[in-house]
Design a protein around this nucleic acid. Sequence first.
DNA 1: ATGGCCTCGGTTCGAGGA
Length: 254
Amino acid sequence: MKIATWNVNSLKVRLPQVLQWLAVNPVDVLGLQETKLTDDKFPIAEIEAAGYQVVFSGQKTYNGVAILSHHPMADVIKNNPHFPDAQQRLIAATIQGIRVICAYVPNGQAVDSDKYRYKLQWLEALHVWLTEELRTHENLVVLGDYNIAPEDRDVHDPVAWQGSVLVSDDERAAFTKLLGLEFKDAFRLFEQDEKLFSWWDYRQMAFRRNMGLRIDHILLSAALAPRCRGCVIDKVPRKWEQPSDHTPVIATIE
DNA sequence: ATGGCCTCGGTTCGAGGA
């Protein structure tokens, strides 16, 4: 079973690329973030025509998440029951005995901003919810755009980024606290080349210069991690015309 | 270098992203 995550930065703009990518990479499950569509505008027909079922939770202009699946989805939940939130950043579904949570973690904008405090509160509430979900779902995948580069090796220039949003100590501590629930970062279960990233700024020719961050992650619960056979970042869509600034991450589960 | 780019809403620019 292949499970992937991709922040598409507007599904309206990126739908052709999502369909193109799925045609070449027919993963079983694909979590999308930043769909930026209200639910009435979601392209259900196009996605179903590609052979996928889909559930989604969106809003105007910002945020928005979706799960595409080759298999039936059950027990769909939108948002964190422990964190009332006008922003649509979470959707969960059970697929083939695996609970999948698709998350778009807040960006945080700048350390010491209100958005940064919201990000930390949001992550704390996520920890509470995941603790609860693990009691009923031993096989749990939490995938998405975490907006956190967990370690310096996930940052193209750790000195330049030191202390800033996406890499700050408090954000990394929140990520580590999630791992404390015995989640494994699927990417780090395997030997990887250096300087592999999932996001590159649109500016400064950052992609061409590989000035990126690894901020999109697939976390696997303790029961699921031993079943993971690989985790890769697919840079190909980032090279396409009018790309998302993020590129897909794919985990293979036996 | 007080930035550069992209998307959206909606209007000719600001907000937000990361």
